[in-house]
Each structure stands twice: as C-alpha cells, then as structure tokens.
Computed example of a mutant assay.
Amino acid sequence: MNALYLLQRYFVASIRTQLQYPASTLMLSFGAFLANAIELAGIWALFNRFGAVQGWQFGDICMFFGMVSISFSIADFLTRGFDVFGSQFVRTGDFDRVLLRPRTATLQLMGHDFRLRVLGRFAQGLAVIVVATRALNFDWDVGAIALTIWTIAGGVALFFGVLVLQATLAFWTVESLEVVNVVTYGGVQAAQYPLTFYTSWFRNFLIFVVPIACVAYFPVLAILHKADPLGAPRWLLPLTPAVGFLFLALSFAVWRLGVRKYTSTGT
C-alpha cells in the first residue's frame, strides 16, 4: 500500500507539471489523436475502393486497430521511465540514485513521467471501436465486454514487457537501440491488421517471438465470434491474452539480470 501511495504521488506531481502548460498538453494530445485518425482514413479509403480483403471488412480492421491503440496507449502511459532509460538514467549515471533509494527501481521508473499526450491515442482507440461497432452492427454483451477488458490487459502487459526489454538493452549498449522501435511501434502497426495479410515467417514472429498476435488477433476473433482462417481452435482464442503476462514476467527476469550486471558510469 505504501508503494501504491508513492506511485500516486508521482502521478499527481507529473500531472501538475504538465498542466502548467495546458494548451501545450492539449495540442500534443490532439496531435496524437489526429495522426492516428489520418492513418485510419487511409485504411477506410482502401476498403472503400476495393471492398472486403480476404473476407475481412473495414469494421473488422477497426476492431483490431482500436484494441491495439488502447492497449499501447496505456502501456506507454506507464512506462515513460523505461522508454528513456538509456539516455536519462544509464548515460547520466542517474540510475545509481535510483538504486540507492529504498524503493524498487521498477516503481521509480514507472513514476518518472506520466505523459498526458497519450490520451489522444487512447481516445482515438475508443472512437475507432465505436466505428467498428456501427460498421459491423455488433452487439456488446457481458461476455464480449469482459473479453475486451481481458484482451486490453494482456496487450498492456505485453507492450510493457517490450519496453522493459528495450530498457534492459541499455545495460549493455548504453543507449536503448532504435531498432527496438521496429518491435514496439512497428508491432503496433502490424497488429492493426489480421495475420492472414502477412507471409508465414512474419506470422510466426508475431505469434511465437514477440507474441503481439496473442493480445490482438486471436482474442479479437473471439470477441467477434469469428473462426480463425489459419486454423487455431476456438477454445484457444480467448485464452491467448495470458501470453502477454507471461511475456512481461520473462521481461522482468531479463531486467533483473541486467540490473545485476549494471556498472556505474562513475559520475
């Protein structure tokens, strides 16, 4: 409970800082909303011109798009400290100060900064799910709502794990490698479309290496009551978000190894 109280204090301090410049915060949030809306407009233009693609409709893509946007926005909100870990903690030696404090490094990095601009992506994700609901004439029952919350939770855990791994690389590379953005932001882009759009090796990568498909593609099929064209059994589809929590646990295991190997800059 003490840790949660401290996290709350971090949260309040971060929000108050950003609200010192409310116009800037609103513009950044609106910019994030608009950027993703333009991308969605491109998808609409594609389906409006060619119709269904491999049996997938515009509403189906919107459901994938919205779920992934919401999951990533929440994970991004909670992991700013891990995202800038290499440049702001390892290179400067500030991680030494983090380790000396009587609280876990994970808690302090989570509380480093809570960026309000991610609300733009979150709001856009909600709006896209509303569009998907209308396009598909989808009826939300209790089971679908519960599965949606479970799917988003698994997605948050998985993207949290990816960003923890990105930070862990800084223990050996000093800077967090930009190539990791191919997995984070690139993974978000890939998860916005069905796996059937991709070649087999890339599908396997999204299922078994960085299992983004397990927190987007498979559970969304279960929500929409669709069978998997690739042959995954129906009973498995709603269970796959659990992989996100397993991935997060493995990421923290690697993180702890990195902390043990950490060598101070001496500054």
Rank of each mutant, 00 (worst) to 15 (best):
P241L: 08
A190K: 05
L136N: 11
L34R: 10
G231I: 01
A37G: 02
P22I: 02
V179S: 13
D60E: 11
C62S: 03
A222Q: 12
N137Q: 14
E175M: 13
D96N: 11
A213H: 04
T265R: 14
H225E: 14
F64V: 06
G42P: 07
G244K: 01
L78M: 10
W140S: 06
A242K: 11
W201C: 03
L257C: 13
R101I: 00
W150Y: 09
A23L: 13
I70Q: 02
V164D: 03
A167D: 03
A216W: 05
A242D: 10
R49V: 13
T151E: 02
I61F: 07
S69V: 07
R16K: 12
T92K: 09
I223N: 06
V220C: 00
D76V: 07
L169Y: 12
V215Q: 09
V220F: 06
F65P: 08
A144P: 07
G42H: 05
I15F: 10
A105N: 09
V90Y: 01
L136A: 00
V162K: 03
I145N: 09
V162C: 05
Q88D: 09
A213M: 05
R134T: 15
D60K: 01
Y185N: 15
L107D: 02
W201K: 14
F11T: 09
S29K: 00
